[in-house]
């Protein structure tokens, strides 16, 4: 009730005198772009909502027309019901396979996080080496490219033979999938550090180690973070593959089991859960980038 009142007051008779005490109109200049941006955000957000509604309506229309059997193409309502069932405790059963959907997702996110963290820990130093030591680049760069082009399912079997079916092969798979983009981005970024800045640092007495850690690394940080964002994305797309064997709890394991029992609606609910959490995570990583490297694009 309070919000509308203030709005009316702001647009009411109190409104006109407000700009007067503001000094020299600077407030107006600083204010209007922000309001424009807000209006812009609303407009595009609205467009997105409309598109989503159209999509859902089309989906429902296809299901109602019974073009395909319901078991293959469930309705949005079916998916929602499965989503609710998987997210609650019902008849003494906890979610799906003994875990709530959010727990499946949490376990998968944990694996993605662990895999990506190891990939950063190994990939950044590897990229630094590749970017600065020529002989290493000659040997390691093709290896990284080779790994990068492999589909994770191709090496999953090997990892299972080596590490069994518990956590180890899953984490290894995610590390192998996420490492190449980080190493490649780091190597490329370190190579393209402007020579002018390197000279300035050398003139100030920087040796090779200081150059690497205090100039090349921070200068490369924006691109490294972009590499990390890409790597997390790759880990995301690989986690379902990692969880095809003994993957419960885990969103990939859940989808796999649901597929086995022809629970199409639950498969779709799982896919949506992965996709939506991916969007949120990407937005978070973008935010981290903006805060951590405000100098992006200014080198």
């Amino acid at each position: 009730m309070t919000a509308p009142t203030t709005t009316t007051a702001a647009s009411g008779p109190d409104r006109p005198p407000q700009p007067v005490p503001e000094p020299a109109g600077t407030g107006a200049v600083a204010d209007s772009p922000r309001r424009d941006r807000l209006r812009e955000a609303f407009r595009w957000g609205g467009l997105r909502l409309v598109a989503l509604a159209v999509l859902l309506a089309a989906w429902q229309a296809v299901v109602s027309a019974e073009v395909w059997p319901r078991v293959l193409v469930p309705s949005p309502g079916d998916v929602w019901r499965q989503f609710v069932l998987a997210s609650t405790v019902h008849d003494g059963v906890r979610g799906y396979g003994g875990h709530l959907l959010i727990e499946h997702l949490g376990v998968s996110l944990g694996r993605i996080g662990t895999g990506s963290a190891y990939a950063v820990l190994a990939g950044v130093p590897l990229g630094l080496l590749i970017g600065t030591v020529r002989p290493l680049a000659v040997v390691l760069e093709p290896a990284v490219t080779f790994l990068r082009t492999l589909p994770p399912l191709a090496y999953l079997s090997l990892l299972v033979i080596w590490f069994g079916i518990d956590e180890a092969p899953k984490i290894w798979l995610l590390v192998i999938a996420a490492l190449p983009p980080i190493a490649a981005a780091t190597a490329a970024a370190v190579r393209t550090v402007p020579g002018q800045l390197v000279e300035a640092a050398r003139a100030l007495g920087s040796g090779p180690t200081a150059l690497l850690l205090s100039v090349r690394l921070p200068c490369a940080l924006p691109e490294i973070l972009t590499g990390v964002r890409i790597a997390v994305g790759v880990a995301y797309t690989s986690v379902v593959a990692a969880e095809t064997i003994n993957g419960v709890p885990g969103i990939g394991g859940m989808i796999r089991d649901a597929q086995r029992y022809n629970q199409t609606a639950l498969v779709i609910a799982g896919i949506l859960a992965i996709g939506l959490s991916g969007i949120v995570l990407d937005a978070l990583l973008r935010l981290v980038e903006r805060i951590a490297v405000p100098w992006r694009g200014r080198v």
Binding site: Q196, L197, E199, A201, C219, W295, R298
Partner: peptide, 11 residues
């Protein structure tokens, strides 16, 4: 050395 360009470290 003071170069012809400032060459400051933006980070």
């Amino acid at each position: 050395v003071v170069f012809q360009q400032p060459r400051l470290f933006p980070w």
